[in-house]
Design a binder for these strands. Structure first.
Lengths: 245, 245
DNA sequence: TATAAAAGATGACGTAAGGTCACTTTCAAC
DNA sequence: GTTGAAAGTGACCTTACGTCATCTTTTATA
């Protein structure tokens, strides 16, 4: 027979938790001393481990209680239920992750305040399902970019580099287009532009050429790049070519 | 001025919730009638939508309150923190999903007997060790990541470029270290490494040198860079240097 | 065997974000 | 002025315990 503290040491479950399980009748001690101290046997230890496991796969204590009480429990059904729940949760988190990355990259390019407020106001209506609303918005705005969207998610490293490079350009813009650092960034941009291997580059070239037309830039509003940065990029690029050439 | 029920209809937020937000001083009505009925203006509606959005990306009300109260809040840090939390949650759910599928398949294949044997053995034998280890590992991950965050916010375009470059390396690793595209990426890495301008680069150099020590690489786990990629990077880099002369 | 210290028990309050009653007061229309 | 709808407040409920505060039992030692 084990005292409550020994059970704690063997299972890692806190004393408070054991008393709580006793109270809600999930796990009662095998017996008690005359003075009322709880005593546990191996049977209870095993059951405790079952509880631990079922908790880690996401069941609530009330559910676990029912499962362990009834001898003939249909495990497969509740496991399937649990699996579908876990999957939907993962899905939800993926959407959140997507939104977060978009926001973070937006900040990297645009700087703090402006972008945040802009994006937040994008989610104004039915905030029930943010992502579907988002998709619709994009659909309406520009179907062209939408086709590229699956490849253009911010977690794609190729696109990410463009975002990073543009962000650095803005960050160090104050150094002037002739600065070494700026010229290096431009150089890397040019080199990356030169990689004309896959189909994505049609889009990337467009991004590069956006600087020519403010109207075009409005069409590709996924990561709005303000005109100032684009103008600066053009200047710095010309300078780079002149030096190089 | 809008009555509370009109706000509900426009925002989808329950009346109880609005009263709750009032009580915790997250969102106070613009004014009240003589009788004490809450009246909201457009300003409050907008703020409510911001709250809704921040909630959908997983922030707690207490955090949202602080964010909206302080004028110049460092959004990038809290967004990164949130992202790292979301990622660890996804990770946890993936492990649960794995366990669930294993159990379900076991039942499907082996029938009744399986559930007793497998489930029992799963938690009696080593599940306890596995689980506690698991939790601790996650905790360590989180705290370590948080320490690095101030320097390593990937909303900073400089760090972002490193992440993007490493990501591309991984993505195109299958092409082999001698491939033109790979060599181009390595070239840009080398060039960026050469930019030893500001203080952040101490960290970036470390990132570059991580390939030497697997233990160090574990410390910088925000965007886990597996050893495979690092080894590949080393090979490709050696090749690049050799070619370059 | 007396006593002190450690271990255990019990109970209350707190957590996050509200839901759900129960009861009272105000608003708006007639 | 009356009345029904809408608004107000307050209390208790939810999960799975953590954290005191106070009291009792057990155990070790003198």
């Amino acid at each position: 027979m084990l005292h409550i503290n020994e059970v704690k040491k063997m299972s890692g479950v806190s004393v408070r938790t054991l008393r709580y399980y006793d109270k809600i009748e999930l796990l009662k001690p095998a017996s008690k001393t005359q003075g009322g101290h709880r005593l546990y046997s191996n049977t209870e230890l095993k059951k405790l481990q079952q509880i631990q496991f079922l908790k880690t796969i996401g069941f609530q204590l009330s559910e676990i209680k029912i499962m362990l009480e009834s001898e003939e429990w249909d495990w497969s059904i509740s496991l399937m239920k649990q699996l579908s729940y876990v999957m939907s949760e993962k899905d939800r988190l993926s959407k959140i992750e997507f939104n977060l990355r978009e926001l973070i990259n937006g900040i990297a390019i645009e700087g703090e305040e402006f972008r945040i407020k802009k994006i937040m106001s994008l989610y104004t209506r039915d905030s029930k399902d943010v992502l579907t609303y988002d998709r619709e918005e994009l659909n309406i705005k520009n179907s062209e970019v939408l086709e590229k969207l699956p490849n253009m998610t911010s977690s794609d490293p190729d696109s990410l580099e463009w975002i990073a490079l543009l962000g650095q350009l803005k960050k160090h813009m104050h150094l002037g287009y002739n600065d070494t650092r700026i010229q290096n960034i431009i150089k890397r941009m040019d080199e990356k532009k030169g990689e004309d291997f896959n189909d994505e580059d049609a889009f990337l070239d467009k991004l590069w050429d956006i600087r020519m037309s403010p109207e075009e830039s409005k069409k590709h509003n996924l990561y709005p790049i303000d005109q100032e940065v684009l103008n600066f990029m053009e200047k710095a690029y010309i300078h780079y070519i002149a030096k190089k050439g």
